[in-house]
Simulated assay, not measured.
Amino acid sequence: MSFRVYHMIIGYCLYACTVQAATVPEVYSVSGKLDNGNVVKVKGSNFGMSGPRIAIFDEFNRNDGSGTIIPLDAPIIGKWSGYGNENRPTYSEYFHSPPSSMQVVNKRGMQQFRLNFAPTTEIFVSYWVKIPAGYVFPGEKEPFKIPYASSWKMSWLMNGDQGYKGRNDVCLPTWMDGYHWGLTGNSGAFPTVHVGGRRGGQWFEFDKWIRISAWLKAGGDPLEDKGTIYFQALVETVGMHEYSVNKFPLLRKNTRIFDESPHWDRINFPGWLRIDSDKTLVVYDDIYVATDDGAAARVEIGDAQEYTECKNLALQIPQKWSNDSISAQVHLGSFARGRRLFLYIFDSNGNHNAKGFAIEN
């Protein structure tokens, strides 16, 4: 199957166009063994003075057996704030990075994690998701069909304990109307951004791991200035779709909560899904959330020298970060040992080295 990289321009800003030659990160060397848990040191320039503030990174690797409840303190970075209900997420045998993933639906309903964090106007979110072979899409009753109705909010960003009723909510993304994947919320305050679907750019595939990544950065005045949106859907072994928007403010004044600046402060995985069949099954893996200034700064390894040609990627775990040096703990994701990979450094503006730096693991 052929697969194209889509770049959608809305307004006047394309994500790739934010790159300026003088400030693009450059990688000179990488030392250390590229193996899970090891620390590698990256030398170069223009990395930026600070890295991401990671709120959570969960590989779901503390598996006590498929079907057991995942503890709130299981992540290798951070801790989940709570469960969505008494039907708690469980480990699954279907994994992206071994040995397990998170199952988010069973015969009793949705299984959900909730994450709260300090108020922020910038966030980067990344996670892998899959519907295994033989199982159905939320809201459907037959395999390999997608319903003509809203049925799945993959993740749901919001503010305040009133959730989406607090006005500043957005799903990252949602199958919203039977035709489109969209970045939008229930409050209606966040303008809808279509990111693929039946009418073009449909990236969803059954029985394939798909990495969803989104970066939202509000403008200097969150209520008045245009913000930045970057969305990526990467289908493993197939290819990447990218969408970028810089057209409107990302936050609204919260009329239900007084004396509060506009912000986001919580996210749910999944946000919501409809279950119309006992054959509904969805699994998530490698959930990563970073907030505040520098949220987009990150270290990734991929399988191609051109970032947009990658068909698999894995986020690394920065431990020390300066403008010319980064130490990061290795997370191979689904990559096998002993193959040639390429390293990418992203600064806080989303710029990355023009060519991936070749490394052997």
Rank of each mutant, 00 (worst) to 15 (best):
V5W: 06
Y6L: 13
I9S: 09
Y15K: 13
T18E: 12
V19P: 00
P25V: 03
E26Y: 03
V27A: 04
V39N: 08
K43N: 13
S45G: 03
I54A: 04
E59L: 13
N61L: 02
L72Y: 11
S81K: 10
F95A: 07
P99L: 11
S100G: 12
S101N: 07
Q111R: 14
Q111E: 14
I123S: 03
I123V: 14
V125D: 01
E140W: 01
K141V: 12
W152D: 08
K153L: 08
L157A: 11
L157M: 13
G160H: 07
G160Q: 07
Q162M: 14
G163A: 00
G178M: 01
H194F: 11
W203E: 03
W203F: 11
E205W: 01
D207N: 09
I212W: 01
K217P: 01
A218G: 09
G219M: 10
P222A: 05
F231T: 11
A233F: 03
L234H: 09
T237I: 00
T237N: 05
M240L: 15
E242C: 01
S244G: 07
N246K: 15
R266S: 08
I267R: 02
G271S: 06
I275E: 04
S277D: 00
Y288E: 04
V299R: 04
D303S: 02
D303Q: 05
T308C: 03
N312G: 06
A314I: 11
I317V: 15
I326K: 04
Q329H: 04
H331L: 05
I345V: 14
H352I: 03
G356A: 07
